[in-house]
Amino acid sequence: MRFVEFGHDGGQWQGPGQGRDYLVRAFAVQHTTPIALGYAITDQSATTLGYTGDTVYCPAVEDLAAISAVVVLDTSFHASRAGHMGLDDVEALAGRWPDRTFIPTHLGDDVTGSDQPNIVFPSDEQTFTLNTLDGYVTGPNDSRENPFGDGAGMLHKWMSAQATDEDRAILERVIDDWGAVVMGRKSFEKNEGEGGWGEGGPVGDVPCFVVTHHKPTRSYPPVFTFVTDGVASAIEQARKAAGDKVVGLHGATVMQQALPLGLVDEIRVHVVSVLVGGGTPLFGTLDSSVTLERTQVMATPAATHLTYRVVR
């Protein structure tokens, strides 16, 4: 554990934490006490979480909103009062930055909801964890014997007995929507056959197209087609097989290859409240930024389910 002390005017610190590098910036905000600071925490994927602390609406709050993907705000009242922001201030920020997510906390009884789609209200039974879209889909040392990786066995708990009705409805919709699957060779080898998917793929008998450099020398169930001429070819073949249904991308490798090629229309992410500290990143390093439009958010005790449209 590391303690960093900032002065009245804020400042910044950069260094390691749990195996990752972080940049922490402190901003002087305006409260009734002489010293009040807000914070922006940026990880090595360049994604920033902002926290305002107790403050009125001031330039430092706008600075935090401008650089953060998610902003947590102390919002005690429906309208602003001395030393505190109100929901009216949060709605002004949300309207100015519609591509950010704003999470008001420290809520008074009169703050119950908002019409702004990018304001998310936590309930007593929910925990919100910032797990960026560059987060890990497995822990370290994943293998056929350890498919989720070290410390990541809970990543699929929203599909298990801990699932709520909302979790199950999301899973059923995925199963109903997918008409074909594209995956990488590693995902295939970790999960096919006995002890994994059995005689089918991740969605039973839905056709699966496996992107690989070399076709296997042994035979596999007919649900699998092995594609050696790249992810674009695999997706094209999957589209024909899917007909009017969706082509699902399974695993990180195919996502990392397909996204820069403009072959991804929608991204669905299921964020579990855990930090595994390493493993397989969903997106890795992209050559350029990709603009997303969030179209759905559902939070359950097991996961936060996010849907994004890829903006072209």
Rank of each mutant, 00 (worst) to 15 (best):
I267T: 01
D124R: 11
F77L: 07
L292C: 01
R268N: 13
V210G: 00
F188W: 12
G184K: 07
V174I: 15
T225N: 08
A163Q: 04
E199L: 08
F121L: 12
Y57V: 01
F3N: 14
V137Y: 13
L259S: 05
G83V: 05
V247L: 07
L249D: 02
F3K: 15
T225M: 00
T253I: 11
M183V: 02
S123E: 06
V311L: 14
A92H: 11
G17C: 13
S45I: 03
Y51Q: 09
T129W: 04
G277I: 04
D9I: 01
P104E: 10
L133N: 08
S143Q: 06
T285N: 11
V72W: 01
H156W: 14
H78Y: 05
L107D: 10
Y136K: 02
V24C: 12
H270D: 15
G11Q: 10
G278A: 11
Y57L: 15
R144K: 13
E194P: 08
I67A: 05
Q296L: 11
M159F: 12
S76E: 02
G149P: 12
A92N: 10
E5V: 15
A238L: 05
W197R: 09
A26R: 06
P34L: 00
V211P: 07
N118R: 07
T228V: 12
S273K: 05
G230N: 04
E189W: 08
A241H: 00
R218L: 10
E189A: 10
K215F: 01
H106N: 11
H156R: 13
D265C: 12
F128W: 07
E293Q: 12
A299H: 10
N146F: 14
Q116E: 13
L171N: 06
N191R: 10
R239P: 01
I170Q: 11
P207Q: 03
F224M: 05
T127R: 09
L155P: 00
T300L: 03
V61Y: 09
A28G: 02
G279K: 03
G278S: 07
R25K: 15
F224C: 04
T138M: 09
L64I: 15
E192A: 10
T47Y: 10
G139F: 07
P104H: 09
D142N: 13
T129L: 10
E172H: 13
